[in-house]
Write a protein that binds this DNA or RNA. Sequence first.
DNA 1: CGTCCATTTGACCAAGCTCAACCGCCGTGG
DNA 2: CCACGGCGGTTGAGCTTGGTCAAATGGACG
Lengths: 260, 260
Amino acid sequence: MVDAMMFSSPAGTQSALSIRLAHYLSLTVEEVAALEAMQGPRRRLIAGEVLIATDGAAESLFVVQQGWLHSSTRPRTGGRQILGFHYPGDLIGTESIAWARAATALTAVSDCIVTDVPKAALGELFAQHGRLAGLLYAVAAAEGVAMSDRLTAMGRMTAMQRLAMLLLDIMARLRVTAGGVIDSFDLPLTQADLGDALGLTKVHVNRTLRAMEAEGMIARTGRRVRICDEAALIAFSGFVDRHAVVATDWLPPRALGVAA
Amino acid sequence: MVDAMMFSSPAGTQSALSIRLAHYLSLTVEEVAALEAMQGPRRRLIAGEVLIATDGAAESLFVVQQGWLHSSTRPRTGGRQILGFHYPGDLIGTESIAWARAATALTAVSDCIVTDVPKAALGELFAQHGRLAGLLYAVAAAEGVAMSDRLTAMGRMTAMQRLAMLLLDIMARLRVTAGGVIDSFDLPLTQADLGDALGLTKVHVNRTLRAMEAEGMIARTGRRVRICDEAALIAFSGFVDRHAVVATDWLPPRALGVAA
DNA sequence: CGTCCATTTGACCAAGCTCAACCGCCGTGG
DNA sequence: CCACGGCGGTTGAGCTTGGTCAAATGGACG
Protein backbone atom coordinates (compact mmCIF):
# COMPACT_ATOMS: atom_id res chain seq x y z
CA MET A 1 0.00 0.00 0.00
CA VAL A 2 2.68 2.45 0.94
CA ASP A 3 4.64 1.55 -2.14
CA ALA A 4 1.58 1.93 -4.29
CA MET A 5 1.03 5.35 -2.85
CA MET A 6 4.56 6.43 -3.44
CA PHE A 7 4.74 5.47 -7.08
CA SER A 8 1.22 5.33 -8.41
CA SER A 9 1.12 8.46 -10.54
CA PRO A 10 1.87 8.22 -14.26
CA ALA A 11 4.97 10.36 -14.04
CA GLY A 12 6.25 8.26 -11.18
CA THR A 13 6.35 11.13 -8.68
CA GLN A 14 3.59 12.61 -6.61
CA SER A 15 2.50 16.17 -6.63
CA ALA A 16 3.30 18.24 -3.59
CA LEU A 17 -0.42 18.34 -2.80
CA SER A 18 -0.73 14.57 -2.40
CA ILE A 19 2.35 14.51 -0.24
CA ARG A 20 1.07 17.23 2.01
CA LEU A 21 -2.42 15.80 2.35
CA ALA A 22 -0.93 12.41 3.17
CA HIS A 23 0.61 14.06 6.24
CA TYR A 24 -2.88 14.60 7.57
CA LEU A 25 -4.67 11.48 6.40
CA SER A 26 -3.65 8.14 4.98
CA LEU A 27 -4.85 8.25 1.39
CA THR A 28 -6.02 5.37 -0.76
CA VAL A 29 -4.45 4.62 -4.12
CA GLU A 30 -7.59 5.85 -5.85
CA GLU A 31 -7.53 9.10 -3.94
CA VAL A 32 -3.92 9.80 -4.83
CA ALA A 33 -4.63 8.96 -8.44
CA ALA A 34 -7.58 11.35 -8.46
CA LEU A 35 -5.48 14.14 -7.00
CA GLU A 36 -2.85 13.60 -9.68
CA ALA A 37 -5.39 13.35 -12.48
CA MET A 38 -6.98 16.62 -11.44
CA GLN A 39 -3.76 18.52 -12.06
CA GLY A 40 -3.02 19.81 -15.53
CA PRO A 41 0.19 21.11 -17.06
CA ARG A 42 2.98 22.60 -15.00
CA ARG A 43 3.96 26.17 -15.31
CA ARG A 44 7.14 27.93 -14.30
CA LEU A 45 7.10 31.39 -12.79
CA ILE A 46 9.98 33.70 -12.13
CA ALA A 47 10.15 35.75 -8.96
CA GLY A 48 7.76 38.68 -9.15
CA GLU A 49 5.68 37.21 -11.96
CA VAL A 50 1.92 37.57 -11.61
CA LEU A 51 0.03 34.29 -11.89
CA ILE A 52 -3.43 35.83 -11.63
CA ALA A 53 -4.25 39.53 -11.50
CA THR A 54 -7.17 40.87 -9.50
CA ASP A 55 -10.36 40.79 -11.61
CA GLY A 56 -8.64 38.58 -14.15
CA ALA A 57 -10.47 35.49 -15.38
CA ALA A 58 -10.43 32.81 -12.70
CA GLU A 59 -10.92 29.52 -14.50
CA SER A 60 -8.34 27.50 -12.66
CA LEU A 61 -6.84 26.91 -9.29
CA PHE A 62 -3.22 25.92 -8.89
CA VAL A 63 -1.10 23.61 -6.81
CA VAL A 64 2.24 24.98 -5.68
CA GLN A 65 4.98 22.44 -6.41
CA GLN A 66 8.01 24.60 -5.69
CA GLY A 67 8.69 28.09 -4.45
CA TRP A 68 6.57 30.69 -2.66
CA LEU A 69 3.75 32.91 -3.82
CA HIS A 70 1.57 35.43 -2.07
CA SER A 71 -1.97 36.61 -2.53
CA SER A 72 -2.68 40.30 -2.28
CA THR A 73 -5.19 43.06 -2.84
CA ARG A 74 -4.80 46.70 -3.78
CA PRO A 75 -7.17 48.80 -1.73
CA ARG A 76 -8.65 51.80 -3.55
CA THR A 77 -6.99 53.95 -0.96
CA GLY A 78 -3.61 53.00 -2.39
CA GLY A 79 -0.90 50.68 -1.19
CA ARG A 80 -1.15 46.92 -1.06
CA GLN A 81 -2.21 44.29 1.42
CA ILE A 82 -0.62 40.86 1.34
CA LEU A 83 -3.19 38.37 2.58
CA GLY A 84 -1.05 35.28 2.90
CA PHE A 85 1.83 33.25 1.62
CA HIS A 86 1.58 29.97 -0.24
CA TYR A 87 4.07 27.13 -0.14
CA PRO A 88 4.64 23.78 -1.86
CA GLY A 89 1.62 21.55 -1.36
CA ASP A 90 -0.89 24.38 -1.13
CA LEU A 91 -3.97 24.50 -3.33
CA ILE A 92 -4.22 28.18 -4.25
CA GLY A 93 -6.65 30.39 -6.06
CA THR A 94 -9.40 29.03 -3.83
CA GLU A 95 -10.15 32.63 -2.88
CA SER A 96 -11.60 33.02 -6.34
CA ILE A 97 -13.58 29.82 -6.59
CA ALA A 98 -16.81 31.54 -5.66
CA TRP A 99 -16.62 34.02 -8.53
CA ALA A 100 -15.80 34.21 -12.22
CA ARG A 101 -13.18 36.91 -11.68
CA ALA A 102 -10.28 36.68 -9.27
CA ALA A 103 -10.87 38.29 -5.89
CA THR A 104 -7.15 38.50 -5.08
CA ALA A 105 -3.94 38.60 -7.06
CA LEU A 106 -1.39 35.78 -6.95
CA THR A 107 2.25 36.71 -7.35
CA ALA A 108 5.40 34.61 -7.26
CA VAL A 109 7.69 35.59 -4.40
CA SER A 110 10.51 33.32 -5.58
CA ASP A 111 10.89 31.25 -8.73
CA CYS A 112 8.03 28.75 -8.68
CA ILE A 113 6.51 25.74 -10.33
CA VAL A 114 2.74 25.37 -10.18
CA THR A 115 0.29 22.94 -11.76
CA ASP A 116 -3.06 23.93 -13.16
CA VAL A 117 -6.33 22.63 -11.65
CA PRO A 118 -9.43 23.53 -13.67
CA LYS A 119 -12.32 24.41 -11.40
CA ALA A 120 -14.47 21.73 -12.99
CA ALA A 121 -11.83 19.12 -12.18
CA LEU A 122 -12.04 20.11 -8.54
CA GLY A 123 -15.83 19.80 -8.78
CA GLU A 124 -15.39 16.27 -10.10
CA LEU A 125 -12.99 15.43 -7.29
CA PHE A 126 -15.53 16.61 -4.74
CA ALA A 127 -18.25 14.51 -6.35
CA GLN A 128 -16.14 11.35 -6.53
CA HIS A 129 -14.09 11.52 -3.36
CA GLY A 130 -15.97 12.70 -0.34
CA ARG A 131 -13.11 12.17 2.07
CA LEU A 132 -10.83 14.37 0.02
CA ALA A 133 -13.55 16.99 -0.11
CA GLY A 134 -13.75 16.91 3.65
CA LEU A 135 -9.99 16.99 4.02
CA LEU A 136 -9.67 19.96 1.68
CA TYR A 137 -12.45 21.66 3.62
CA ALA A 138 -10.55 21.11 6.85
CA VAL A 139 -7.30 22.38 5.37
CA ALA A 140 -9.10 25.47 4.09
CA ALA A 141 -10.58 25.97 7.55
CA ALA A 142 -7.10 25.76 9.08
CA GLU A 143 -5.88 28.39 6.65
CA GLY A 144 -8.84 30.54 7.57
CA VAL A 145 -7.85 30.31 11.21
CA ALA A 146 -4.27 31.22 10.33
CA MET A 147 -5.65 34.28 8.59
CA SER A 148 -7.78 35.12 11.60
CA ASP A 149 -4.62 34.97 13.70
CA ARG A 150 -3.17 37.59 11.41
CA LEU A 151 -6.33 39.63 11.78
CA THR A 152 -5.96 39.46 15.54
CA ALA A 153 -2.35 40.49 15.25
CA MET A 154 -3.18 43.51 13.14
CA GLY A 155 -6.02 44.56 15.38
CA ARG A 156 -4.53 44.09 18.78
CA MET A 157 -0.77 43.62 18.71
CA THR A 158 2.36 45.74 18.41
CA ALA A 159 4.62 45.81 15.41
CA MET A 160 7.19 43.60 17.11
CA GLN A 161 4.64 41.00 18.09
CA ARG A 162 3.21 40.94 14.58
CA LEU A 163 6.61 40.43 13.06
CA ALA A 164 7.43 37.68 15.54
CA MET A 165 4.16 35.94 14.71
CA LEU A 166 4.73 36.14 10.98
CA LEU A 167 8.24 34.70 11.21
CA LEU A 168 7.03 31.88 13.47
CA ASP A 169 4.13 31.17 11.13
CA ILE A 170 6.35 30.97 8.09
CA MET A 171 8.70 28.61 9.87
CA ALA A 172 5.84 26.43 11.09
CA ARG A 173 4.45 26.12 7.58
CA LEU A 174 7.86 25.35 6.12
CA ARG A 175 8.27 22.56 8.66
CA VAL A 176 5.20 20.77 7.27
CA THR A 177 6.94 20.16 3.97
CA ALA A 178 10.55 20.39 5.08
CA GLY A 179 10.02 17.56 7.52
CA GLY A 180 12.56 17.95 10.29
CA VAL A 181 12.75 20.71 12.82
CA ILE A 182 14.47 23.75 11.41
CA ASP A 183 15.31 26.93 13.29
CA SER A 184 16.30 29.13 10.37
CA PHE A 185 15.14 29.70 6.82
CA ASP A 186 15.65 31.88 3.77
CA LEU A 187 13.17 34.69 3.59
CA PRO A 188 12.66 35.74 -0.03
CA LEU A 189 10.68 38.80 1.02
CA THR A 190 11.67 42.44 1.04
CA GLN A 191 10.98 44.52 4.11
CA ALA A 192 8.31 46.26 2.05
CA ASP A 193 6.64 42.87 1.52
CA LEU A 194 6.69 42.18 5.25
CA GLY A 195 5.16 45.58 5.86
CA ASP A 196 2.41 44.97 3.33
CA ALA A 197 1.63 41.67 5.02
CA LEU A 198 1.49 43.18 8.49
CA GLY A 199 -0.01 46.59 7.86
CA LEU A 200 3.24 48.42 8.58
CA THR A 201 5.51 50.65 6.55
CA LYS A 202 8.84 49.33 5.34
CA VAL A 203 10.57 51.94 7.48
CA HIS A 204 8.93 50.66 10.61
CA VAL A 205 9.58 47.04 9.63
CA ASN A 206 13.23 47.89 9.39
CA ARG A 207 13.38 49.54 12.78
CA THR A 208 11.47 46.70 14.37
CA LEU A 209 13.64 44.00 12.83
CA ARG A 210 16.77 45.73 14.07
CA ALA A 211 15.26 46.07 17.53
CA MET A 212 14.47 42.36 17.56
CA GLU A 213 18.00 41.61 16.49
CA ALA A 214 19.39 43.91 19.16
CA GLU A 215 17.36 42.09 21.78
CA GLY A 216 18.64 38.75 20.60
CA MET A 217 15.28 37.42 19.49
CA ILE A 218 16.39 36.76 15.94
CA ALA A 219 19.60 36.81 13.90
CA ARG A 220 19.86 37.85 10.26
CA THR A 221 22.56 37.15 7.72
CA GLY A 222 21.54 38.43 4.33
CA ARG A 223 18.05 37.12 3.69
CA ARG A 224 18.45 34.23 6.10
CA VAL A 225 16.63 34.49 9.41
CA ARG A 226 17.32 32.43 12.50
CA ILE A 227 14.90 32.21 15.38
CA CYS A 228 17.18 32.31 18.41
CA ASP A 229 14.77 31.48 21.21
CA GLU A 230 11.62 30.05 19.75
CA ALA A 231 9.87 29.43 23.05
CA ALA A 232 10.43 33.01 24.14
CA LEU A 233 9.18 34.38 20.84
CA ILE A 234 6.07 32.22 21.07
CA ALA A 235 5.37 33.42 24.58
CA PHE A 236 5.96 37.00 23.52
CA SER A 237 3.69 36.91 20.48
CA GLY A 238 1.08 34.34 21.46
CA PHE A 239 1.69 32.40 18.26
CA VAL A 240 -0.24 29.13 17.76
CA ASP A 241 0.83 26.65 15.11
CA ARG A 242 -2.13 26.04 12.81
CA HIS A 243 -0.29 23.88 10.29
CA ALA A 244 1.15 20.96 12.22
CA VAL A 245 -2.05 19.03 12.87
CA VAL A 246 -5.39 18.77 11.11
CA ALA A 247 -8.10 16.62 12.69
CA THR A 248 -9.58 14.10 10.28
CA ASP A 249 -11.31 11.74 12.69
CA TRP A 250 -14.70 13.12 11.66
CA LEU A 251 -14.27 11.96 8.09
CA PRO A 252 -15.97 8.69 7.16
CA PRO A 253 -13.76 5.60 6.82
CA ARG A 254 -11.96 5.32 3.54
CA ALA A 255 -14.34 2.99 1.73
CA LEU A 256 -17.33 5.32 1.83
CA GLY A 257 -18.31 7.51 -1.04
CA VAL A 258 -15.97 6.15 -3.69
CA ALA A 259 -17.68 5.84 -7.02
CA ALA A 260 -18.20 2.22 -7.98
CA MET B 1 -44.32 30.15 19.52
CA VAL B 2 -44.35 31.49 16.01
CA ASP B 3 -40.63 30.88 15.83
CA ALA B 4 -40.96 27.27 16.85
CA MET B 5 -43.55 26.70 14.16
CA MET B 6 -41.43 28.31 11.49
CA PHE B 7 -38.42 26.15 12.07
CA SER B 8 -39.50 22.79 13.44
CA SER B 9 -37.98 20.47 10.88
CA PRO B 10 -40.17 17.38 11.41
CA ALA B 11 -43.10 19.44 10.16
CA GLY B 12 -41.40 19.69 6.80
CA THR B 13 -40.12 23.27 6.77
CA GLN B 14 -36.55 23.91 5.73
CA SER B 15 -33.68 25.03 7.88
CA ALA B 16 -32.16 28.44 7.25
CA LEU B 17 -29.12 26.68 5.78
CA SER B 18 -31.09 24.96 3.02
CA ILE B 19 -32.84 28.20 2.23
CA ARG B 20 -29.63 30.12 1.97
CA LEU B 21 -27.83 27.49 -0.11
CA ALA B 22 -30.82 27.34 -2.43
CA HIS B 23 -30.13 30.98 -3.23
CA TYR B 24 -26.85 29.95 -4.79
CA LEU B 25 -27.74 26.62 -6.37
CA SER B 26 -30.94 24.78 -7.17
CA LEU B 27 -30.93 21.83 -4.78
CA THR B 28 -32.43 18.39 -5.33
CA VAL B 29 -34.94 16.92 -2.92
CA GLU B 30 -32.30 14.46 -1.71
CA GLU B 31 -29.84 17.23 -1.05
CA VAL B 32 -32.30 19.24 0.99
CA ALA B 33 -33.24 16.10 2.91
CA ALA B 34 -29.59 15.40 3.64
CA LEU B 35 -29.06 18.94 4.89
CA GLU B 36 -32.03 18.62 7.19
CA ALA B 37 -31.05 15.16 8.41
CA MET B 38 -27.59 16.39 9.28
CA GLN B 39 -28.95 18.90 11.79
CA GLY B 40 -29.60 17.74 15.32
CA PRO B 41 -31.56 19.37 18.10
CA ARG B 42 -32.09 23.10 18.20
CA ARG B 43 -30.80 25.23 20.98
CA ARG B 44 -31.82 28.65 22.20
CA LEU B 45 -29.26 31.20 23.28
CA ILE B 46 -29.80 34.48 25.00
CA ALA B 47 -27.81 37.55 24.02
CA GLY B 48 -24.29 37.33 25.38
CA GLU B 49 -24.38 33.57 25.95
CA VAL B 50 -21.30 31.64 24.92
CA LEU B 51 -22.01 28.75 22.57
CA ILE B 52 -18.41 27.50 22.45
CA ALA B 53 -15.49 28.81 24.45
CA THR B 54 -11.97 28.90 23.07
CA ASP B 55 -10.22 25.58 23.72
CA GLY B 56 -13.53 24.00 24.62
CA ALA B 57 -14.41 20.63 23.10
CA ALA B 58 -15.36 21.09 19.45
CA GLU B 59 -17.52 18.11 18.56
CA SER B 60 -20.17 19.92 16.65
CA LEU B 61 -20.76 22.69 14.21
CA PHE B 62 -23.95 24.71 14.26
CA VAL B 63 -26.40 26.24 11.84
CA VAL B 64 -27.73 29.66 12.76
CA GLN B 65 -31.51 29.69 12.43
CA GLN B 66 -32.22 33.02 14.04
CA GLY B 67 -30.27 35.90 15.52
CA TRP B 68 -26.62 36.93 15.30
CA LEU B 69 -23.46 35.50 16.78
CA HIS B 70 -19.83 36.44 16.52
CA SER B 71 -16.60 34.49 16.67
CA SER B 72 -13.72 35.94 18.63
CA THR B 73 -10.31 35.33 20.12
CA ARG B 74 -8.61 36.67 23.21
CA PRO B 75 -5.00 37.52 22.41
CA ARG B 76 -2.52 36.85 25.23
CA THR B 77 -1.77 40.54 25.16
CA GLY B 78 -5.24 41.27 26.48
CA GLY B 79 -8.36 42.60 24.87
CA ARG B 80 -10.46 40.76 22.33
CA GLN B 81 -10.63 40.45 18.58
CA ILE B 82 -13.95 39.76 16.91
CA LEU B 83 -13.27 37.80 13.75
CA GLY B 84 -16.64 37.88 12.12
CA PHE B 85 -20.38 37.90 12.53
CA HIS B 86 -22.72 35.04 11.74
CA TYR B 87 -26.29 35.30 10.55
CA PRO B 88 -29.24 32.99 9.85
CA GLY B 89 -28.26 30.39 7.27
CA ASP B 90 -24.59 30.31 8.23
CA LEU B 91 -22.81 27.09 9.10
CA ILE B 92 -20.59 28.08 12.03
CA GLY B 93 -17.90 26.48 14.10
CA THR B 94 -16.11 25.53 10.88
CA GLU B 95 -13.08 27.38 12.26
CA SER B 96 -12.70 24.49 14.67
CA ILE B 97 -13.27 21.61 12.28
CA ALA B 98 -9.57 21.00 11.85
CA TRP B 99 -8.93 20.47 15.55
CA ALA B 100 -10.41 18.73 18.58
CA ARG B 101 -10.55 21.96 20.58
CA ALA B 102 -12.19 25.15 19.45
CA ALA B 103 -9.87 27.69 17.84
CA THR B 104 -12.26 30.59 18.35
CA ALA B 105 -15.12 31.36 20.71
CA LEU B 106 -18.71 31.68 19.51
CA THR B 107 -20.94 34.12 21.37
CA ALA B 108 -24.55 35.14 20.80
CA VAL B 109 -24.89 38.81 19.93
CA SER B 110 -28.67 38.76 20.12
CA ASP B 111 -31.07 36.02 21.22
CA CYS B 112 -30.47 33.12 18.84
CA ILE B 113 -31.65 29.73 17.76
CA VAL B 114 -29.05 27.31 16.42
CA THR B 115 -29.15 23.67 15.41
CA ASP B 116 -26.42 21.18 16.16
CA VAL B 117 -24.41 19.50 13.38
CA PRO B 118 -22.09 16.74 14.61
CA LYS B 119 -18.81 16.80 12.75
CA ALA B 120 -19.29 13.20 11.66
CA ALA B 121 -22.64 14.13 10.12
CA LEU B 122 -20.90 16.74 8.02
CA GLY B 123 -18.35 14.12 7.00
CA GLU B 124 -21.22 11.89 5.86
CA LEU B 125 -22.77 14.73 3.92
CA PHE B 126 -19.49 15.33 2.12
CA ALA B 127 -19.18 11.66 1.26
CA GLN B 128 -22.74 11.35 -0.03
CA HIS B 129 -23.32 14.69 -1.69
CA GLY B 130 -20.39 16.00 -3.67
CA ARG B 131 -22.20 19.02 -5.01
CA LEU B 132 -23.08 20.17 -1.53
CA ALA B 133 -19.48 19.65 -0.48
CA GLY B 134 -18.40 21.86 -3.35
CA LEU B 135 -21.03 24.45 -2.57
CA LEU B 136 -20.06 24.57 1.10
CA TYR B 137 -16.45 24.89 0.01
CA ALA B 138 -17.34 27.84 -2.20
CA VAL B 139 -19.35 29.51 0.55
CA ALA B 140 -16.44 29.05 2.95
CA ALA B 141 -14.12 30.55 0.34
CA ALA B 142 -16.41 33.56 0.01
CA GLU B 143 -16.35 34.01 3.77
CA GLY B 144 -12.58 33.80 3.67
CA VAL B 145 -12.48 36.59 1.13
CA ALA B 146 -14.82 38.66 3.28
CA MET B 147 -12.35 38.15 6.12
CA SER B 148 -9.45 39.13 3.90
CA ASP B 149 -11.33 42.34 3.11
CA ARG B 150 -11.41 43.02 6.82
CA LEU B 151 -7.70 42.26 7.00
CA THR B 152 -7.08 44.78 4.25
CA ALA B 153 -9.20 47.31 6.07
CA MET B 154 -7.29 46.87 9.30
CA GLY B 155 -3.94 47.04 7.59
CA ARG B 156 -4.42 49.89 5.19
CA MET B 157 -7.50 51.93 5.99
CA THR B 158 -8.56 54.67 8.37
CA ALA B 159 -11.01 54.20 11.21
CA MET B 160 -13.81 55.83 9.25
CA GLN B 161 -13.26 53.66 6.22
CA ARG B 162 -13.19 50.54 8.36
CA LEU B 163 -16.42 51.44 10.04
CA ALA B 164 -18.06 52.23 6.72
CA MET B 165 -16.96 48.87 5.35
CA LEU B 166 -18.24 46.96 8.32
CA LEU B 167 -21.65 48.60 8.18
CA LEU B 168 -21.91 47.97 4.45
CA ASP B 169 -20.82 44.36 4.91
CA ILE B 170 -23.41 43.71 7.60
CA MET B 171 -26.11 45.20 5.43
CA ALA B 172 -25.04 43.16 2.40
CA ARG B 173 -25.15 39.95 4.40
CA LEU B 174 -28.54 40.78 5.87
CA ARG B 175 -29.88 41.33 2.38
CA VAL B 176 -29.09 37.73 1.45
CA THR B 177 -31.63 36.42 3.94
CA ALA B 178 -33.86 39.47 4.25
CA GLY B 179 -34.59 39.34 0.54
CA GLY B 180 -35.48 42.84 -0.57
CA VAL B 181 -33.25 45.87 -0.63
CA ILE B 182 -32.99 47.46 2.78
CA ASP B 183 -31.14 50.66 3.62
CA SER B 184 -31.29 50.48 7.41
CA PHE B 185 -31.04 47.77 10.04
CA ASP B 186 -30.88 47.16 13.77
CA LEU B 187 -27.36 46.83 15.02
CA PRO B 188 -27.31 44.71 18.18
CA LEU B 189 -23.66 45.58 18.83
CA THR B 190 -22.15 47.91 21.38
CA GLN B 191 -19.53 50.39 20.27
CA ALA B 192 -17.04 48.26 22.17
CA ASP B 193 -18.02 45.31 19.96
CA LEU B 194 -17.51 47.38 16.84
CA GLY B 195 -14.12 48.40 18.13
CA ASP B 196 -13.11 44.81 18.85
CA ALA B 197 -14.13 43.85 15.33
CA LEU B 198 -12.17 46.68 13.73
CA GLY B 199 -9.12 46.94 15.94
CA LEU B 200 -10.20 50.25 17.47
CA THR B 201 -11.09 51.38 20.96
CA LYS B 202 -14.68 52.07 21.87
CA VAL B 203 -13.77 55.71 22.44
CA HIS B 204 -12.51 56.11 18.94
CA VAL B 205 -15.47 54.20 17.50
CA ASN B 206 -17.74 56.69 19.18
CA ARG B 207 -15.91 59.70 17.82
CA THR B 208 -15.81 58.21 14.35
CA LEU B 209 -19.50 57.32 14.33
CA ARG B 210 -20.39 60.85 15.37
CA ALA B 211 -18.16 62.25 12.68
CA MET B 212 -19.85 60.06 10.08
CA GLU B 213 -23.21 61.21 11.34
CA ALA B 214 -22.11 64.84 11.23
CA GLU B 215 -21.02 64.40 7.63
CA GLY B 216 -24.36 62.88 6.70
CA MET B 217 -22.98 59.47 5.77
CA ILE B 218 -25.17 57.62 8.23
CA ALA B 219 -28.06 58.33 10.57
CA ARG B 220 -28.60 56.68 13.94
CA THR B 221 -31.69 56.40 16.09
CA GLY B 222 -31.03 54.23 19.08
CA ARG B 223 -29.43 51.05 17.78
CA ARG B 224 -30.87 51.48 14.31
CA VAL B 225 -28.49 52.56 11.59
CA ARG B 226 -29.44 53.98 8.23
CA ILE B 227 -27.01 54.22 5.35
CA CYS B 228 -27.83 57.58 3.82
CA ASP B 229 -25.81 57.47 0.61
CA GLU B 230 -24.75 53.93 -0.07
CA ALA B 231 -22.98 54.66 -3.33
CA ALA B 232 -20.89 57.36 -1.70
CA LEU B 233 -19.99 55.12 1.23
CA ILE B 234 -18.97 52.33 -1.14
CA ALA B 235 -16.76 54.69 -3.11
CA PHE B 236 -15.27 56.05 0.09
CA SER B 237 -14.46 52.67 1.63
CA GLY B 238 -13.85 50.48 -1.41
CA PHE B 239 -16.36 47.93 -0.15
CA VAL B 240 -17.10 44.91 -2.35
CA ASP B 241 -20.12 42.72 -1.71
CA ARG B 242 -18.93 39.14 -1.22
CA HIS B 243 -22.29 37.69 -0.26
CA ALA B 244 -24.65 38.41 -3.12
CA VAL B 245 -23.31 35.92 -5.65
CA VAL B 246 -21.46 32.61 -5.41
CA ALA B 247 -20.37 30.91 -8.63
CA THR B 248 -21.49 27.30 -8.87
CA ASP B 249 -20.99 26.63 -12.56
CA TRP B 250 -17.91 24.52 -11.83
CA LEU B 251 -19.92 21.99 -9.83
CA PRO B 252 -20.93 18.81 -11.65
CA PRO B 253 -24.57 18.54 -12.79
CA ARG B 254 -27.02 17.39 -10.19
CA ALA B 255 -27.59 13.85 -11.41
CA LEU B 256 -24.10 12.55 -10.68
CA GLY B 257 -23.99 9.60 -8.32
CA VAL B 258 -27.59 9.90 -7.16
CA ALA B 259 -30.51 8.08 -8.72
CA ALA B 260 -33.24 10.70 -8.95
C1' DC C 1 -34.38 56.54 43.44
C1' DG C 2 -30.19 54.10 42.85
C1' DT C 3 -27.43 51.00 40.11
C1' DC C 4 -25.53 49.39 35.92
C1' DC C 5 -24.09 49.82 31.49
C1' DA C 6 -23.47 52.15 27.09
C1' DT C 7 -22.44 56.46 25.24
C1' DT C 8 -20.20 60.82 25.10
C1' DT C 9 -16.62 64.22 25.79
C1' DG C 10 -12.07 66.23 27.19
C1' DA C 11 -7.00 66.34 27.86
C1' DC C 12 -2.94 64.23 27.01
C1' DC C 13 0.19 60.58 25.08
C1' DA C 14 2.72 57.43 21.96
C1' DA C 15 3.19 53.93 18.28
C1' DG C 16 3.85 54.08 13.98
C1' DC C 17 3.70 57.13 9.61
C1' DT C 18 5.71 60.63 6.39
C1' DC C 19 9.25 62.75 4.24
C1' DA C 20 13.84 62.81 3.21
C1' DA C 21 18.40 61.55 2.78
C1' DC C 22 22.11 58.26 2.44
C1' DC C 23 24.45 53.73 2.00
C1' DG C 24 25.73 49.40 -0.11
C1' DC C 25 25.20 45.99 -3.40
C1' DC C 26 24.68 44.33 -7.97
C1' DG C 27 23.71 44.18 -12.82
C1' DT C 28 24.41 46.65 -17.04
C1' DG C 29 26.28 49.30 -20.59
C1' DG C 30 29.93 52.12 -22.39
C1' DC D 1 37.10 47.70 -16.22
C1' DC D 2 34.66 51.17 -14.35
C1' DA D 3 30.71 54.47 -14.09
C1' DC D 4 25.97 54.56 -13.58
C1' DG D 5 21.40 53.52 -12.04
C1' DG D 6 18.12 51.05 -9.46
C1' DC D 7 16.64 48.67 -5.58
C1' DG D 8 16.64 47.39 -0.95
C1' DG D 9 18.05 48.61 3.39
C1' DT D 10 19.14 52.14 7.11
C1' DT D 11 18.66 56.30 9.70
C1' DG D 12 16.89 60.91 11.32
C1' DA D 13 13.23 64.61 12.39
C1' DG D 14 8.76 65.82 12.95
C1' DC D 15 3.83 64.74 12.69
C1' DT D 16 -0.87 62.29 12.87
C1' DT D 17 -4.00 58.87 14.01
C1' DG D 18 -5.75 56.62 17.28
C1' DG D 19 -4.87 55.09 22.28
C1' DT D 20 -5.15 56.04 27.39
C1' DC D 21 -7.12 57.85 31.32
C1' DA D 22 -10.76 60.00 33.39
C1' DA D 23 -15.13 61.81 34.15
C1' DA D 24 -19.86 63.21 32.94
C1' DT D 25 -24.33 62.00 30.73
C1' DG D 26 -28.25 59.30 30.08
C1' DG D 27 -31.38 55.48 29.58
C1' DA D 28 -33.28 50.93 31.43
C1' DC D 29 -34.68 48.45 35.07
C1' DG D 30 -35.53 46.90 39.67
